[in-house]
Design a protein around this nucleic acid. Structure first.
Lengths: 132, 132
DNA sequence: TCCTTGCTTCGACGACTATCGAGACAGAGG
DNA sequence: CCTCTGTCTCGATAGTCGTCGAAGCAAGGA
């Protein structure tokens, strides 16, 4: 149960495409929304979970695969998955005996755009090719 | 004092340009480095501070400007600035009576690239509007 | 020199978090 | 029906975090 809200990130609250951090001061609510997501990613275990899920073949991973990677109890992994779920980063679906998690589409891209809009990033990251 | 290390983020540990979260599982140390930065950004006050500094005219802001924005004590603002500093996101410099903070260059861009490499981002963001 | 202002450090306190073991729930298979 | 396996929830505990007031430094001006 809980809130596997659609687009939890903030699409609703106006962050989406045009509010890069560096262009203008974040509003209180924007900061609150974003902070919730970054806080969820502010743990090594959760970051690895996210990466494991995102990079897994087929775009989704079974909890059983994830548990083996860490020296942590099942409940702990389950807890971290719940945090990622409630932050709107992943979604889980039960199929038969196993539960599969996948990364929600676009969320990471939108976060990246808030940190540094695409155009800006192209020059600062790859300052050699002045495309675009 | 402290560790205003050069390139704290992780340039050293191999994250920099070619390890997007979604391409392959993060190593333990990569996750640790990244988590430190995301954890620093996982607080609304710190995100707004970061945004205020980044978007301020001249690329830097005096602490006195930042303090007025929040209903928080001076020591608390100072504490948050210290967290951002130790995460390698900002740097402070005293000039006369005032201390000015600025966002370290490229850090946000590199973070963005870890979340979603530039090329991928262009398409996923474009169709974000169609989703939901 | 002393005083004032700006910022940081220190010490403390309440709130939150990561982790665990025990137990509950959901399917699959006998 | 029962049992086994995979996952989640609950309750407890140790540790971390955000916040404050008090005190300390640093710089500029009487």
């Amino acid at each position: 149960m809980s809130k596997q809200a659609p687009g939890v990130l903030s699409l609703d609250s106006g962050i989406e495409c045009c509010s890069p951090l560096v262009a203008e001061p974040l509003s209180g609510s924007q900061a609150g929304e974003l902070a919730r997501v970054f806080k969820a990613m502010g743990d090594p275990v959760r970051l690895r979970l996210l990466s494991l899920i995102a990079s897994h073949a087929g775009g989704e991973a079974c909890v059983c695969d994830l548990t083996d990677v860490f020296d942590l109890s099942g409940p702990t992994i389950s807890h971290h998955l719940k945090v990622l779920r409630e932050a709107g980063l992943i979604a889980g679906e039960r199929r038969g005996t196993w539960v599969y998690y996948r990364v929600l589409p676009d969320v990471l891209g939108q976060l990246a755009d808030v940190l540094a809009p695409t155009s800006v990033r192209r020059q600062s990251t790859t300052k050699a090719k002045a495309t675009q």
